[in-house]
Design a protein around this nucleic acid. Sequence first.
DNA 1: TGTACATCAGTGAACGCGCGTTCACTGATGTAC
DNA 2: TGTACATCAGTGAACGCGCGTTCACTGATGTAC
Lengths: 204, 204
Amino acid sequence: MDTNERRERLRDDLVAAARGAIERAGLSSLKARELAAEAGCAVGAIYNVFPDLDALVLAVNAGTLERFESFVAGRREPEASPEQALTGLADAYLDFAAANPHLWRALFQHRLPDGKSVPDWYLAAQARLFAHVEAPLGRLCPGLGAGERALLARTLFSATHGMVALGLDEKLVPIPLETLRAQLATVVSAMARGLAQGNALKHA
Amino acid sequence: MDTNERRERLRDDLVAAARGAIERAGLSSLKARELAAEAGCAVGAIYNVFPDLDALVLAVNAGTLERFESFVAGRREPEASPEQALTGLADAYLDFAAANPHLWRALFQHRLPDGKSVPDWYLAAQARLFAHVEAPLGRLCPGLGAGERALLARTLFSATHGMVALGLDEKLVPIPLETLRAQLATVVSAMARGLAQGNALKHA
DNA sequence: TGTACATCAGTGAACGCGCGTTCACTGATGTAC
DNA sequence: TGTACATCAGTGAACGCGCGTTCACTGATGTAC
C-alpha cells in the first residue's frame, strides 16, 4: 500500500473514532489514548496526522456541519411559503440536534486556545448553512439589502439555536420533544409574520 | 469574634473571591489555590465551608441571577405596551450579558456532575426571572392558560438567550453591540406582533 | 478571675488522578545501483 | 531480480503539568470548674 494512502486511511480512521467517541459520550470524553486504541494505532501516530487534538475536533465538527447541511437540503420544499420554509428549517434544526445531541453540542462547546482562530474552510461551511435561511428570508422581506439579510439570517439562526439548545437542556425542567417542536413553530411563524408585516409597512 | 461569624465571613470572602476570579477570566479559571490565596485562607479551609467547588460556583451563580433580577426589575416601565416590555427585557438581557460576560456565561457553562441535581432555591431564582417575561406575555396574549404562558415565556427567553449568546460570541464574525441591539429589537418586536396577531385570530 | 482541658476551625504538604504531548527507538517501505 | 541503504511512519513509555481533595497536625477559641 502507498504511504500516502496509509496516511489518509489513518486520518479517516482517527476522525471516525473521534466522531464515535463524541457521539457516544460528548466532547469532553475525547481521549488521545482511547482514540488511538479505537483507530488501531499508537498515541504518537495521531500527531503524525494532526498537529493536536483540536485539529481533530475541528475535522469532526466540519463533518457534522456537512451532514447537517445535507440534512437540511434534503428537506427543502421549493413550493413552501417563506414562513413555512423558515418553520421547516427550525424543525430540521431541532430534529438534527435531538438525533445527534453530542455531536451537535460539540459544534458550540469546542473553543480553540486563545491565539488560534477558526480556519476559513470552517467558516465557509457555516456560511453555506446560513444561506438556507437567507433564501426564504429574502422572499419574506424583499426590501432587505444583502448585508441586512445576512445579518438577520444569522440572528434568526441564533434565536432558533437558543430555543433548541435550552429546550433540549436537562438543566431546566425537561420539555417533551413534541411540545418543543410546537413552541418552535409558534415562535418562528410569529417572527415570520411579524417580520413580513414590519417589512411591508416600512416599504409601503 | 464568634466562631459562626468567622465562618460566615469566610464564606462571603470565598464567594467574593470566586466571583472575582470568574468575572476576570471565566469559570474555567477558578482554582482552589488561587481562591484560598485571594480569600486569605488555606486551601483546606474551603472544604470546611463548602462541600466542593461546585457548591461554590452555585453560590456565585445564585448571586448573578439575583443581580440580574434586580437589574431587570430596575428597568421596568409599567406604562409600556407588552411589545415594548418584551423588547425592553431583551435589551436588559443584552446589556447585562455584555457588561458581565464571564459571570453570565458561567450560568450556562457550569454543569453539575452526573448524579447531582440543581438545588431548589436555584430553580426558584430562575422562576422569578421568567416571571418578568410572563407578565407582558399575559397581556399580549390574554387567551393563554397559565401553563402555556409559562412555557412560551421560557421559549421566548431561550430565543433571546440564543441571539445574545451567539451575538456576543467571537467564534462567528463579531457584531457591534448596537447592531446586535437593533437586531434583537427587530426580531423580538416581530415575534410580539406575530404572537398578538396569532392569538387574536385564534380567539376571534 | 485564673487554670486546665476539649473542641474544632484552620493549615498546607502530599495524594491521586487524568491526560495531552514528546521523543528515542524500530521496522516497514521505497529507492538506487 | 537482488542487495544495501535511507527514510520516515509508527511505537508506547515517560514527561510534565494541572488541579481537586484529603488528612495528620496546630493553635486559637470557648467551656468547666
